[in-house]
Nucleic acid binder design. Structure first.
Length: 554
RNA sequence: UGGGGGAUCGUCUAACGGUAGGACAGCGGACUCUGACUCCGCCAGUCUAGGUUCGAAUCCUAGUCCCCCAGCCA
């Protein structure tokens, strides 16, 4: 992590708590952890947790671990483990030697479970899942004790050993903490600590046939790793009393404290792993890295730089109130970063042919700067000739009052080239405009008129003969409403026009050198990057985000 | 009276009993070889009602609204 990363941090209640803990001498090294379950890909919501945990650790000179919460082999896969590590690194964070897995602690956790049994604080329950649910009570009524709650320590120890040995089928028995079936907090109504799962675990294979639940694994893992501040999202508030109960009753090596913050929500976006998984599985999108996905893999493929994601997270802040961030805030962060870094190129998304009638000769090459505010990026040559393409949107036969671009009789500047004036509109039998006939002013080479005359617009263009064909993919919101699913069915809110493919775009020759993930600004259009779907001679570009367009708005 | 948490410009977020500030969005203007960028300006908020206090977003009381919890998921 760099100093710049540290400077990106803001102030929030988490950092206030840490300051207070340090001032009071309650903590030594600040240790945090990012604890994903490897059952899916990381998304922008995880980025908030990652930036918070790694950011805080860095600021206070501590460290942040990457810990896989791999306690449920039925849902977890190696593919996800690999993807998560790749994405955290890409975001710009490094866990160094602190790579852990809850599964590293299975043996220790097992011993601690026995510890509870020995003290009469846990018991083996033979009830079925249905029976446990029925006897748990409701939100307003107390639960009832399990008939197995009174088993002797020896009997519990024996049964628990046999659960581990694989003697019983899935679901036959559980280990439960003996707390209080009448608690107002349902997490304290004898929560399940271990369940029987006969499945292949990505790391421990078939060694275990019982697995600890999140509640039994998480706090103890924090304690083993010396986590000082265990930061999680709001829905775990109700688990804190159980978290603390376990820490109190177990001989753990440290006393971590849990603090909760609001998860990230963004308008028109879904960050539910269940929904994202379905989107992929049912082919609503092309994969976890579909550029429309809010996953880090999707954002990366779309061309969003990690710096922009970190900046966005910093701008959103960390608080305890539920909120929904306007996606315009995200677009802003992306544009801000890309504007500073992305080299400029010209590409015509929807070409309209223009013939410059008074231009003779073989053509020429003109100079174009690669970045208007960064001379160090140098310049390049762009081929110009008698036939070019301009954007269809840049011509109107009957222009409305505020339309500054090309129309019959008006003069505009071709960026980096010449002033041209439209003389004639050529249409096909159907009345469709197929070509424009223009004239140019040779004296305006380079883009300036010696006589000082001005034009109201500068438009982009490419050579008709020297430009290259390209496919361009424009992305729109994946969902049609700011609160997808609020109407009952998220999948009914999927935007049928979230992907728009422009198969006949033309790009300037310099773009043949573009590589994946290199952000480029197509002047007057937006930021783009080459997609891995590109083939030799058949480049594909993704639009990361469009430029602001105050004309389109008006 | 199940338990837990939260309410500040349209949105996100500061304030820690002492001038309600910033960002995004929006609006207006300047500049411009990108209707971009940049710059300038404007707009706009403390959930309600009482109380304490010289002074309340902050403390107290009573309400209102929103979120989370009844997985052998995390």
């Amino acid at each position: 992590m760099t100093d710049a990363t540290v400077a990106e941090a803001g102030r929030d209640f988490v950092r206030d708590i840490i300051d207070a803990d340090r001032a009071a001498g309650r903590v030594g090294t600040i240790v945090t952890r990012f604890p994903p379950e490897p059952n899916g890909y990381l998304h922008i919501g995880h980025a908030k947790s990652i930036c918070l945990n790694f950011g805080v650790a860095q600021e206070y000179g501590g460290h942040c671990a990457l810990r896989f919460d791999d306690t449920n082999p039925a849902k977890e896969e190696q593919e996800y483990i690999d993807a998560i590590m790749r994405d955290v690194r890409w975001l710009g964070y490094n866990w160094g030697t602190h790579l852990h897995h809850a599964s590293d602690y299975f043996e220790q956790l097992y011993k601690w479970a026995e510890h509870l049994i020995e003290r009469g604080l846990a018991y083996v329950d033979d009830q079925t899942a249905d029976q446990i649910r029925e006897t748990r009570g409701t939100l307003k009524e107390a639960g009832r004790d399990s008939p197995f709650r009174g088993r002797t320590v020896d009997e519990n120890l024996d049964l628990f050993k046999r659960m581990r040995a694989g003697e019983f089928p899935n679901g036959a028995r559980t280990l439960r903490a003996k707390i209080d079936m009448a608690s107002g907090n349902i997490n304290l109504r004898d929560p399940v600590l271990y369940r029987i799962i006969h499945a292949e675990h990505p790391r421990t294979g078939k060694t275990w046939s019982i697995y600890p639940t999140y509640d039994f694994a998480h706090g103890q893992s924090d304690a083993i790793e010396g986590v000082s501040h265990s930061l999680c999202t709001l829905e775990f508030e109700d688990h804190k009393p159980l978290y603390d109960w376990l820490i109190e009753h177990l001989p753990v090596p440290s006393r971590p404290r849990q603090y909760e913050f609001a998860r990230l929500n963004i308008g028109y976006t879904v960050l539910s792993k269940r929904v994202l998984t379905t989107l992929v599985r049912d082919r609503y999108v092309s994969g976890w890295d579909d550029p429309r996905m809010p996953t880090l893999a999707g954002l990366r493929r779309r061309g969003v730089p990690p710096e922009a994601i970190r900046d966005f997270i910093r701008r959103v802040g960390v608080a305890r109130a539920n909120s929904v961030v306007d996606f315009a805030m995200f677009d802003f962060a992306v544009r801000e970063h890309l504007n500073k870094t992305a080299p400029r190129r010209m590409a015509v998304l929807r070409p309209l042919k223009v013939v410059i009638e008074n231009y003779d000769g073989p053509g020429e090459e003109l100079d174009a700067v690669n970045h208007p505010d960064d001379p160090s990026q140098g310049s390049r040559k762009i081929p110009f000739g008698r036939e070019i393409y301009i954007e269809r949107d840049d011509f109107m036969e009957i222009p409305p009052k505020k339309f500054f671009r090309l129309s019959p009789g008006t003069e505009v500047r071709l960026r980096y080239a010449y002033f041209v004036t439209c003389r004639e509109v050529v249409k096909d039998a159907a009345g469709e405009i197929v070509e424009l006939r223009c004239t140019y002013d040779p004296a305006t080479r380079g883009g300036n008129a010696p006589d000082g005359r001005k034009v109201k617009a500068t438009i982009h263009w490419v050579s008709a003969t020297k430009s290259l064909p390209a496919e361009i993919r424009l992305y729109n919101q994946l969902f049609t409403r700011p609160d997808p699913g609020a109407g009952g069915d998220v999948f009914a809110d999927i935007n049928p026009n979230s992907l728009e493919i422009l198969a006949d775009a033309r790009i300037e020759p310099a773009l043949a050198q573009a590589n994946d993930e290199q952000a480029i600004q197509f002047e007057r259009q937006g930021y783009f990057c080459r997609d891995p779907d590109s083939a030799p001679g058949k480049p594909v570009f993704n639009r990361t985000v469009g430029l602001r367009d105050s004309y389109a708005k008006a």
